Amino acid sequence: MKLTIKNWTGVATWRWVANDDNCGICRMPFDGCCPDCKLPGDDCPLVWGQCSHCFHMHCIVKWLQSQPVNQQCPMCRQPWKFNNK
């Protein structure tokens, strides 16, 4: 028996590669988006600190703005520095 494929549709998925499944600030999954965004992806990127903790970019920026004196990682309390991978 021979089969002829008349139509084929490729499907792909994407996932952020992070050290956790959820943002430590908003607790939303990384494959979703933060509460400020409507769609996941490039408009809601992840950022890592030098301490290796990962957050939605919008979440950590808000967190740092709320901590004007001691800008620390919300998970480990080390001074927050963006990791330039």
Rank of each mutant, 00 (worst) to 15 (best):
M1P: 10
M1T: 11
M1W: 09
M1Q: 09
M1R: 12
K2I: 15
K2S: 15
T4D: 13
I5W: 05
K6S: 14
N7C: 14
N7S: 15
N7Y: 08
W8D: 09
G10Y: 04
G10S: 11
V11H: 11
V11D: 05
A12C: 11
W14M: 15
W14Y: 12
W14N: 10
R15D: 08
R15C: 06
W16H: 10
W16P: 09
W16F: 14
V17T: 14
V17I: 06
A18P: 03
N19V: 02
D20E: 13
D20F: 06
D20W: 01
D21N: 10
N22H: 15
C23A: 06
C23P: 08
I25E: 04
C26Y: 02
C26A: 07
C26N: 01
C26W: 01
R27N: 12
M28E: 13
M28N: 14
M28D: 10
F30A: 01
F30Y: 04
D31G: 02
D31R: 09
G32A: 15
P35K: 11
D36S: 13
C37R: 07
K38V: 15
L39V: 09
P40E: 03
P40N: 12
P40V: 12
P40C: 09
G41M: 03
D42F: 11
D42E: 07
D43Y: 06
C44R: 01
C44S: 11
C44H: 03
P45V: 02
L46K: 02
L46N: 04
C51S: 07
S52F: 02
S52Q: 13
C54R: 00
F55Q: 00
H56L: 00
H56Q: 01
M57C: 06
M57V: 03
M57E: 14
H58R: 13
C59V: 01
W63P: 09
W63R: 02
W63I: 10
W63V: 07
W63N: 00
L64P: 07
L64V: 06
L64A: 12
L64I: 12
L64C: 12
Q65G: 05
S66T: 14
Q67V: 06
P68L: 05
P68T: 02
V69L: 07
V69M: 05
N70Y: 08
N70P: 09
N70L: 01
Q71I: 07
Q72P: 04
C73W: 01
C73R: 03
P74F: 07
C76T: 08
Q78K: 12
P79W: 04
P79G: 02
W80A: 04
W80V: 00
F82P: 00
F82S: 10
N83M: 13
N83V: 03
K85V: 09
K85G: 11
